[in-house]
Design a protein around this nucleic acid. Structure first.
Lengths: 242, 242
DNA sequence: GAAAATTTGTTCGTATGTATC
DNA sequence: CGATACATACGAACAAATTTT
C-alpha cells in the first residue's frame, strides 16, 4: 500500500526540513497510519511529493533508517519501506546511551535482576511443553561444555533467554537481551568447573519450579541464583551470574 | 580533546562508506576512545580526514545523530561532538520498536511491574531524606488535584518516577520512563474521584515502607498497588494503575 | 550592536555501482 | 543478458544560522 498522506512541507515552521519529514513519518507510524511493509517511495518520489530536494529526503531517510523505522533497498523495486519491528534494534540504542551516560554494571545488574525475577514467575505460569523442551535442551547443552568456560557461559546465557521466552512476554525478552548486551563485555570472566556445576544445579532448580507451575518458587529460585540484591552488595562479584 | 584515531577509509571492504564511518565512531565510543564532549570536527574536516566527500560524512553524521551518539551544532565553533548520554533518548527507540513489532500494553505492563517492584525495594534500601521529601511532595501535589482526572494521573506518575529515582539506579529509572512512554497513550483514561483516593492511600502505604527501610514490604505494597500479576489477568483494567 | 567568519542546511548536476525485471 | 530503476557517492554552489570579533 502506498502512502497517500504526504503533503508538501511548507518551509515556514520550525526545525530543519529533513527533521520535519522525519517527524511526519514517525508520527504516522505512532498513529498507525503507516505499518510495517508500507512502501514510501524512492528518494526521487519522496523529494517530489514533499517538495524538497533529493538530498534533504536522503537526510531524513538516513535518520529514519538509523532508528529502525524504515528499511532501504537499492535497485529496481527498491526504495524506502516501513521496517518490521526488530526488538533487538533498540538494544543497541540502550547500550550506547548507557555507555555515554556512564551507567555502570552494578545499576545494570539491578535492572537485570528485576527483569529476570519476573520472567521466571511468568514462565512458570505460561510455559508450554515446548518451552520445557527448550529449557532442558539448554541445560543439556551447558552440561556438555562444563569444562569450557566461554562455551559454558554462552550456553548458560541461552538458558536465561529460554526462561524469558517461556514467559511469552516479548517486552521482557527484549529488555533482557538489551541489558545482557550491555553487561556482556564486563562479564566474560573465566568460570571454574566448580562454579559451573553449581550454576547448573541452580538452573535445574529454576527449571523444576517452572515445570511445576510454581510462579513464586521460580522467582525465588531465580533471585537466589542471581545472588540476591542484598547479598551481591556486600561481596565481590567473582562468579558468573548465568 | 580532538580525535586522532581517524584514518582514511579504504574503499575496498564491505558495506557503504558512510556505514563504515558510523561503525568506526560507534566502536570508538564503546571502547572508550571517544567520550562525551569530544570534538570530531566539521563536515569538511571529517570529509578530508576520512578521504570521502562531504555528503558521505553527512550521511554518517545523520545516522550518528539520530541514534544520539553525536550532537551537531551550526555556526562558528560548531561541528560534531560526542553527545552526552541521554537516557530518555532510547525511550523513543523502544517505543518505536514496540509499536512496529506490535507489542501490546499487556506485555509492556508486565515489564513495568517487574521494574517497579524492584524500584520500590531498592528505594527502601537506598532512600535519602531528600528522596523522602520528594516523595511526600509528589503525594501532596496529587492530593490537591484529586478531582481533576488528567492532572491527578500526571501527579501520580510523578510519584512513581520519584520512587524510581529514590532507588538510585539510573538503569531502572530509564527503563521505567521508556515503558511509561509506551503505555501512556493507552492509559489516559479518566479516573473517578473514588479511584483517585484509593490510589493515594496505596501510595502512602508504599511511602511508609520506603521510609521504614522495609524493602520486602515496599515491593509487596507496590505489587499490590499495581494489581498484581495474577489479579490483573482476570479482571478488566478500568483503573489507572498509577 | 554590527560585521565577519565558520559551519550546517539545502539545492542542482553528474557519475557509478547494484539489484530487479 | 540487457534494460531499467534505484541508492550511493562526488563536486560546486548558495542560503541560513550561530558564534566570534
Amino acid at each position: 500500500m502506498s502512502a497517500t498522506f504526504i503533503n508538501k512541507i511548507s518551509p515556514v515552521r520550525g526545525g530543519t526540513l529533513s527533521s520535519r519529514i522525519v517527524e511526519e513519518i514517525r508520527d504516522a507510524v505512532f498513529q498507525g497510519r503507516l505499518s510495517p511493509g508500507d512502501f514510501l517511495g524512492s528518494e526521487n518520489d519522496l523529494a517530489d511529493r514533499f517538495g524538497v530536494s533529493r538530498i534533504t529526503v536522503r537526510d531524513a531517510l538516513r535518520s529514519l533508517s538509523a532508528t529502525g523505522i524504515v528499511e532501504i533497498r537499492q535497485g529496481a523495486g527498491g526504495g524506502a519501506r516501513i521496517a518490521n519491528g526488530n526488538l533487538d534494534h533498540f538494544a543497541d540504542a540502550l547500550a550506547v546511551q548507557f555507555q555515554l551516560a556512564g551507567v555502570g554494571t552494578e545499576e545494570t545488574l539491578g535492572a537485570q535482576s528485576a527483569i529476570e525475577g519476573m520472567t521466571a514467575e511468568l514462565a512458570a505460569e505460561h510455559r508450554t511443553t515446548k518451552d520445557l523442551t527448550r529449557l532442558t535442551e539448554a541445560i543439556e547443552r551447558a552440561s556438555q561444555v562444563v569444562e569450557d568456560a566461554a562455551a559454558f557461559t554462552e550456553a548458560s546465557l541461552a538458558f536465561h533467554l529460554a526462561v524469558a521466552e517461556a514467559s511469552h512476554n516479548r517486552a521482557l525478552v527484549a529488555l533482557l537481551r538489551a541489558l545482557r548486551y550491555v553487561v556482556w563485555p564486563a562479564e566474560n570472566k573465566s568460570a571454574t568447573r566448580e562454579v559451573s556445576e553449581r550454576v547448573q544445579k541452580t538452573h535445574r532448580a529454576i527449571y523444576e519450579r517452572i515445570e511445576a507451575r510454581d510462579g513464586a518458587g521460580a522467582r525465588e529460585a531465580m533471585n537466589q541464583h542471581l545472588g540476591g540484591i542484598q547479598a551481591s552488595k556486600n561481596r565481590k562479584r567473582t562468579e558468573v551470574p548465568c
